[in-house]
């Protein structure tokens, strides 16, 4: 891919655990979490990664920003190989991460201090930090709350602060690891609106999620399967119409696909590539 910002080549990652046996000797237990993943991610794209627990989604995310280093294979971010010790800090600054539980990511007792934490650690000049913190808080709609204590905010608001903290690092790429899993529907919508906004502003977005209705908002969806790597890779339409394959890995196809399958089984002529409710409605109207 010409315009690729992240290039993953045959990535294998194994967790190694030392186990002590009854006789006192130790053995190494190896668990392979990623088995040969190759992925080219285009600059400015919005990629959703879906898969069951244990399929390696979070391991993949942590490899992308160098929190974990590949057992085998190669990852390059903006042309720099992640195994390069000298450049790893540049990469971490370029690839920000937002995790599931906002309570585990907030460190300061005042919102704006929390957002400033990342760039402060990078030694960014203080006037630049001020600017970045203000910009980040405005973008996530939390500027008015800048002097509040994070623990008094709702889950959705806390997650927006965590996103502002990631933005203050001025990254090109943001990896969201199930950012809405612990939020109520309102908080979930707030966070998804911000993710879409960041995508429009040109950031490269990688969203790990269990919610199909979030994955359909991306421009590319990758489905991971435990032990065997990438199962499906394509536009949301291309991926979600494969209802059999989705069910094989215990993912529920979107309603329009499910209902389309059922009507087809009864002999109706419903195209396989209908994945959204509006499309099914429109098609049925034409059929009538």
């Amino acid at each position: 891919m010409e315009n690729s910002i992240i290039k993953i080549e045959n990535l294998i990652y194994e967790y190694v655990k030392q186990e002590v046996l009854d006789d006192g000797s130790t053995v190494e237990k190896v668990k392979r979490a990623l088995n040969g993943i190759s992925l080219d991610i285009e600059k400015g794209s919005f990629l959703a990664v879906v898969g069951q627990n244990g399929s390696g989604k979070s391991t993949l995310a942590k490899n992308i920003n160098g929190l974990l280093l590949p057992t085998r294979g190669k990852i390059t971010v903006k042309g720099v190989e992640l195994a390069d010790d000298e450049r790893i800090w540049d990469i971490r600054q370029n690839v920000a991460m937002v995790f599931q539980n906002p309570d585990n990511q907030l460190v300061a007792s005042i919102v704006e201090d929390d957002v400033a934490f990342g760039p402060e650690n990078l030694g960014v000049p203080s006037e630049v930090i001020r600017q970045r913190v203000d910009d980040a808080l405005k973008l996530v709609g939390m500027y008015e709350m800048r002097n509040k204590a994070p623990h008094l905010l709702s889950g959705g608001q806390k997650q927006r602060i965590a996103i502002a903290g990631a933005l203050a690092m001025d990254p090109d790429i943001i990896v969201f690891d199930e950012p809405t899993a612990m939020l109520d529907p309102k908080g979930r919508k707030e966070v998804m609106a911000i993710i879409n906004k960041l995508h429009e502003e040109g950031k490269t977005i990688i969203l790990i999620t269990h919610f199909m209705e979030e994955a359909v908002q991306a421009d590319r969806v990758v489905i991971l399967k435990k032990g065997s790597g990438i199962l499906l890779d394509g536009s949301p339409k291309e991926v979600f119409c494969q209802s059999e394959t989705l069910r094989d890995v215990d993912l529920t196809p979107p309603l329009a696909v499910e209902l389309g399958d059922r009507l087809r089984a009864r002999g109706m002529d419903i195209p396989q590539d209908i994945t959204r409710i509006e499309e099914l409605v429109e098609y049925l109207c034409q059929l009538k």
Binding site: A256, E278, V281
Partner: peptide, 20 residues
């Protein structure tokens, strides 16, 4: 109330609006 409808209700209501 900032709540959602079930997906299937959304779909059927959309069809009803189109005269189904």
């Amino acid at each position: 109330k900032d709540l959602d409808l079930p997906d299937v209700t959304n779909l059927c209501e959309a069809l009803r609006e189109k005269g189904f």
